[in-house]
Structure formats: structure tokens, C-alpha cells
């Protein structure tokens, strides 16, 4: 008989009770979302991998501080964003290498169209990674993880007004960087 899947709150409680396997489940459940936050921040697989790992190690160390009324995913995003902000401030921005287009599956469409689409996607990722930190964090959390402005404000330690302003400037800067200025 297969054991019923535990929800996040049950997994956190199990971790606190010393069940190491429960944290493995948390990692497995949230690793992709955490990796995506980190990747969009740094636009590098290697760095995103390291940052994601650091996020989970910090989460494990700080699990006793997690308030169960909050969503575990939001708490992990908060840690990931802080880890990324710390790392980005220490390290020069990464530029996506040419071999990034190896991720494109050429069977899906015409090679020419795939190349153009891949180049455009790479340009968008580069542009996002080139935004100022707060704008980048806001854009990532709002656009790709659909967090409410209020939660983003809590994560970034700012007001809802500041989050909206950062979101606006992030989009305006992307427009400039991607050449959509009229």
C-alpha cells in the first residue's frame, strides 16, 4: 500500500521531529521552482544550481523559524531571493554562453524558427538578469511565480507601492533593452 502524500505542513512537522526523509521530500517537491527563481536571477545553470543548493541548506538550518501559517513555497522563495541578492552583490553578472541554445529541441519546429525563438528567449533572459536587483526580484516573483504584490513586499522588505513601482520600471527597462521603444 502506498503511503498518502504528506502536505508541506506535515513535512515541516516531521522534519522538526527529526525525520530526515521529510526534508528530502521537501527538496524534491520544491527544487524545480527554487531553481527557476535562481536561474532567472543569474541566468546561469551552474550558478543557479549552487544557489538552489544553498537555499535548501539555509532552509534546513532555519526550519525552526518557519511560521506554518505561511506557504512553504513563499518562504523558500524568500530565502532563494536573499541568497541570490547576496551572491549577485558579490559576483559580476553572468553572460549567457553561446551554447545556451543546446537546450532547444530542434525536432519541435523548423530549425530557423527555433533558432530565432531561442535567440529571442536568450535575449529576454539576459535582459532580465541585467535589471537592477529589486526590479529583477519583483519581476521574477510576480511574473513567473504569480505572488501577490503584498507577499513580494514582505519578501523584499518594502511597501506594496514600491513593489508596483519596481515592477513598472522592470517592464519599462525590459522594453528598452529588448528594443521595443517606439
Amino acid at each position: 500500500m502506498v503511503a498518502p502524500e504528506r502536505d508541506d505542513a506535515a513535512l515541516v512537522a516531521a522534519c522538526r521531529a527529526g525525520d530526515n526523509g521529510a526534508f528530502d521530500e521537501i527538496v524534491e517537491r520544491h527544487r524545480r521552482a527554487v531553481y527557476q527563481v535562481c536561474f532567472r536571477f543569474v541566468n546561469s545553470h551552474e550558478d543557479a544550481s549552487d544557489l538552489s543548493q544553498e537555499t535548501f541548506v539555509r532552509a534546513w538550518k532555519g526550519l525552526q523559524n518557519f511560521k506554518s501559517e505561511a506557504a512553504l513555497s513563499t518562504w523558500l522563495y524568500r530565502i532563494a531571493v536573499n541568497v541570490c541578492l547576496n551572491r549577485v552583490s558579490l559576483k559580476k553578472l553572468y553572460t549567457e554562453p553561446l551554447e545556451a541554445d543546446k537546450f532547444i529541441d530542434p525536432r519541435a519546429e523548423e530549425p530557423g524558427a527555433a533558432l530565432i525563438r531561442g535567440e529571442r528567449a536568450a535575449a529576454v533572459r539576459r535582459a532580465i538578469a541585467g535589471l537592477p536587483e529589486k526590479q529583477r526580484a519583483t519581476l521574477i516573483l510576480r511574473t513567473y511565480h504569480e505572488l501577490p504584490h503584498q507577499e513580494i513586499a514582505a519578501i523584499l522588505g518594502s511597501s506594496v507601492g514600491a513593489v508596483k513601482a519596481n515592477f513598472f520600471h522592470a517592464l519599462a527597462n525590459l522594453k528598452k533593452l529588448l528594443g521595443r521603444e517606439p
Binding site: 524534491e28 527544487r31 531553481y35 545556451a100 528567449a121 529576454v124 511574473t143 517592464l171 525590459l174 529588448l178
Partner: peptide, 27 residues
């Protein structure tokens, strides 16, 4: 209209999916 267009385009840009082997190693 312009902001909505850039938001729409950004939203459709996925993160390249690492290999399944990466996830095993990651854990």
C-alpha cells in the same frame, strides 16, 4: 499596450530544463 506586450513575451520565456540526472544529483 507596450508594457502588456513585454510582460506577455517575458512570461513565455521558460527556464531551460536541466536533465533528469541533474535533479538526482541535486538532491
Amino acid at each position: 499596450v507596450q508594457l502588456a506586450a513585454i510582460l506577455r513575451e517575458s512570461r513565455h520565456v521558460d527556464v531551460p530544463e536541466p536533465s533528469p540526472l541533474f535533479w538526482d544529483h541535486f538532491s
